[in-house]
Write a protein that binds this DNA or RNA. Structure first.
Length: 291
DNA sequence: TACCAGGCTCCTT
DNA sequence: AAGGAGCATGGT
């Protein structure tokens, strides 16, 4: 058993497979902040503050059931890492990413965040999403909830430009309006992956990569393998040259099957932090620094 | 200064 | 079907 719950509290026992820093900083989520030794994360209208002490992690939160699901606590990542190793995922990536988990985020929030993410940097995505929330999110008691589709639909292109979304502004307006008008955000949770991806790609600003991120982080569809520039680099290094991200995604999804999403996240996190082509020194240094 | 970032849209072949 | 220019913005 990895954890126990109390009122507005989750205690995660010492584990190689829960590291709040890896979980939040691996690029899957943009609404978090670190103040001192406390990591805060905002999800929808919910909020959690996690502190690591003596190996275990204490999480104070608005709703412990919500965050048990959010942090994917009922899954055994030790077994997942073993299976991924058997399937040929780079050992160094599995070791580096130890403690990482795939979050289960709100679909609409994930959709919007990853539209912002296209051709963008994680630090900038964070800042932009934060401005979006403080401008349009309701007060949830000392912090802002993620804006509703209605609130986002009521804002115009100029607003989205003013918070720094640049050329993505019209995508956000149109997508928010489609959702506010009742576009289906349920079916991606259960349709076959190809159909689900197609549905999501119908939203302006959503292509195959953003759709796959929404499927993975918003719906828990771990059979998809989002392929961005880092994953294309990783593919080139470990599986052979292929510059088309859609082909990379298909190829790696075929290799890793139901575990694709996990494989992808370990790889992404590893590539982003330990690239530099001769990665040995960088890897051990970063890992030590973090321990 | 160029190049790049969790890419997509639109226009040519 | 496949390939490439252009795109806002800011960091290195």
């Amino acid at each position: 058993m990895l954890y126990e719950t109390g009122k507005n509290r989750i205690t995660v026992f010492p584990s190689e497979d829960f590291d709040i820093r890896r979980i939040l900083e691996c690029g899957q989520v943009f609404r978090y902040r670190k103040t001192g030794d406390v990591y805060e994360v905002f999800a929808g209208r919910e909020h959690a503050a996690a502190r690591n002490s003596g190996g275990k992690t204490e999480i104070e939160c608005t709703d412990e059931k919500y965050f048990v699901k959010y942090f994917d606590l009922n899954r055994n990542y030790g077994i997942i890492r073993l299976k991924l190793r058997d399937k040929g995922l780079v050992r160094a990536a599995l070791d580096f990413g130890k403690g990482l988990r795939i979050l289960r985020q709100e679909p609409f929030e994930t959709l919007v965040s990853f539209i912002v993410s296209q051709n963008n940097r994680i630090s900038r995505i964070k800042d932009t999403v934060e401005r979006l929330c403080s401008a349009l999110g309701e007060d949830a008691g000392g912090y802002r909830a993620f804006p509703s589709p209605a609130a986002m639909a009521a804002a115009d292109e100029d607003f989205y430009r003013s918070i720094g979304t640049g050329y993505r502004a019209p995508y956000l307006v149109k997508t928010a309006r489609l959702v506010a008008e009742g576009a289906d955000l349920d079916s991606p949770g259960f349709l076959p992956a190809d159909e689900a991806r197609e549905r999501l790609c119908a939203f302006p600003g959503v292509g195959p990569k953003v759709a796959d991120c929404v499927l993975l982080f918003g719906y828990g569809r771990t059979e998809v393998f989002p392929a961005d520039t880092w994953i294309v680099k990783a593919c080139d290094r470990y599986w052979g040259k292929e510059t088309n991200p859609v082909k990379v995604s298909r190829k790696l999804a075929a290799t890793f099957g139901e575990l694709s999403g996990y494989a992808q996240q370990y790889l992404f996190d590893y590539m982003r932090n330990c690239d530099d082509q001769d990665d040995k020194e960088t890897t051990s240094q970063t890992t030590e620094d973090y321990l």
